[in-house]
Simulated assay, not measured.
Amino acid sequence: MKLPSNQIAVLAFAACMAAGPSAPVLAQGTAQESAAGQGSEHGLSAAQIVEKNEAARGGVDAWRKIQTMVWVGHVESANVAVSTLPFVLELKRPNKTRFEITALNQVAVRVYDGTNGWKLRPTRGGKPDLQAYTPDEQKFAHEEQVIDGPLIDYQAKGIAVSLDGLDEVEGNKAYRLRVKLPSGASHHVWIDARTFLDIKYDRETRSVIGQTATISVFYRNYQNVEGLQIPATIETGLGTGQPKNRLVIEKIALNPPLEDWRFAKPGTQGRNEAVSIGGASQATRETGRPAR
């Protein structure tokens, strides 16, 4: 049993963004648009909110030092019969990602080398099915700001941030920021008005038959990992009352050695086939630290 392809994509994307939460949806904008925004009812501009968010997450200088990151955990999903699905997420600057998820001793892999992406999935016949990313997946992967997200060093990345308003998210006041990437892609991210940590973003997804839907992603249970604030639980869902998927991060490794071949097309040179969760977990246990 395995998650449907679009569910794997959403979970992988949410996990990548949790290192520096946020995700793109379609819109227009330029890097020169003001990050100061309009003053909120609390008197804070977008630039001031981002500055407080950077400080709350551990500081810009600390995040700049992180070049690689590995997460080990499990997925809890109401969409499959298996109660928990182990996963390993590997991230490397500037935007390399590798996401492995295991179900019934079979491993599905999503990997992006910074330019191209591939999906390797098990089949009933036992022969792995390797496919290139769809255009939508390719676009999202290319626009990901892995490791630290779009708000850290946003000006250096050519990103514009504006304040859209003050909302209530699950009983908490939260600033709604619009983040516009150099490509013109845009999305909303909500910053808790008390802690100034990211607590939510909305992401548009497309099914294999072309239908679009908005998926809400919530960041919960922030943990201190060597001075950085990182959410230990990421929850995704299509709306109120709908089944939720939850990523639970059990271990986090900062700056472990990750060779570029880990992010190459699966099967290339016989070195980067999908690996078992046991092997990846063991490597992380040797270099990682609990996310608490």
Rank of each mutant, 00 (worst) to 15 (best):
K2A: 09
P4M: 06
S5T: 08
N6V: 07
A12M: 14
F13Y: 02
A15N: 09
M17K: 12
M17S: 14
M17C: 14
A19F: 01
A19R: 00
P24Y: 08
G29M: 09
T30P: 01
A31F: 15
Q32H: 09
Q32W: 12
E33G: 10
A35S: 14
S45T: 14
I49P: 05
E51I: 02
K52A: 11
N53Y: 09
A55Q: 15
A56K: 11
R57V: 00
G59C: 02
G59D: 04
A62L: 13
W63L: 07
R64Q: 14
I66K: 09
Q67G: 03
Q67R: 08
T68F: 14
V70G: 07
S77K: 03
A78E: 14
V80D: 12
V80Q: 09
S83I: 02
S83V: 03
P86T: 04
V88A: 10
P94Y: 03
K96T: 06
T97Q: 05
F99V: 03
L104Q: 06
V111T: 09
D113G: 11
T115V: 14
K119L: 07
K119P: 00
R121T: 09
T123Y: 04
D129A: 12
T134K: 10
T134H: 08
P135T: 13
D136I: 10
D136H: 08
Q138H: 15
K139N: 13
K139Y: 15
E144W: 14
Q145P: 00
V146G: 03
G149D: 07
L151I: 01
D153V: 02
Y154V: 00
Q155V: 07
L166D: 01
R176I: 02
P182S: 15
G184P: 11
H187K: 08
H187P: 07
W190C: 02
D192N: 05
A193H: 06
L197H: 08
L197G: 04
L197R: 03
D198V: 10
I199T: 03
I199N: 05
Y201E: 00
D202N: 02
D202R: 01
R206H: 02
S207T: 13
V208S: 06
V208I: 05
S216N: 12
V217H: 01
N221E: 11
N221D: 13
Y222P: 03
Y222L: 05
Q223Y: 07
N224M: 12
P231N: 05
P231M: 08
A232V: 04
I234V: 15
Q242Y: 15
Q242N: 12
P243C: 09
K244I: 06
I249Y: 13
I249F: 15
A253K: 01
N255S: 01
P256E: 04
P256K: 04
W261N: 11
R262D: 06
T268Y: 13
T268N: 11
R271T: 07
E273D: 09
A274C: 12
G278I: 05
A280L: 15
Q282D: 10
A283W: 12
T284N: 04
A291G: 06
A291L: 14
